[in-house]
Simulated assay, not measured.
Amino acid sequence: MTDSDPANLPHARLRARAARSNRPGRYEGYARESVDDGWAGDEEPPPPLRTEVREERPRSVLTRNRSPDVGFDRSVNPYRGCEHGCIYCFARPTHAYLGLSPGLDFETKLIAKPDAPEILRREISKPSYRPEPVAFGTNTDPYMPIERERRITRGCLEVLQEFRHPLTVVTKGTLVERDADILGEMGQAGLAQAAVSVTTLDAGLARAMEPRVPSPARRLRAIERLARAGCPVRVSVSPIVPGLTDHEIEAILQAARDAGAAYATMIVLRLPLEVADLFQEWLAHARPDRAARVMARVREVQGGADYDATWGTRMTGQGTYAELLQQRFTLALKRTGLSREAPKLRTDLFRVPPKAGDQLALF
Score class of each variant (00 low, 15 high):
A203D: 14
R212Y: 06
R314F: 06
A291G: 11
E250W: 06
D37Y: 07
L160Q: 00
A116F: 08
R293L: 13
I182H: 02
E83A: 11
L360I: 02
A255Y: 03
E56L: 14
G155S: 04
M315P: 02
M266P: 01
D3K: 09
T171E: 02
R270C: 01
P10T: 10
Q327K: 14
P343K: 09
T108L: 09
L362T: 12
I87D: 00
R80G: 04
W282Q: 05
R351C: 03
P288E: 12
A251G: 03
L325W: 01
V169D: 01
D5N: 15
Y79L: 01
A112P: 03
G71P: 07
D5C: 10
V70H: 12
R257V: 00
A259E: 08
R17Y: 11
E185K: 07
V76W: 01
L100Y: 01
D306K: 05
D308L: 12
E323C: 05
H285E: 15
A292D: 14
Q318H: 09
V268C: 09
T330I: 05
V198D: 00
W282A: 10
R154K: 13
L362E: 11
L14I: 09
G155V: 02
C89K: 05
G184H: 05
G137Q: 01
M315I: 03
A203E: 15
L201Y: 09
Q161W: 01
D42V: 07
R335T: 08
N139K: 09
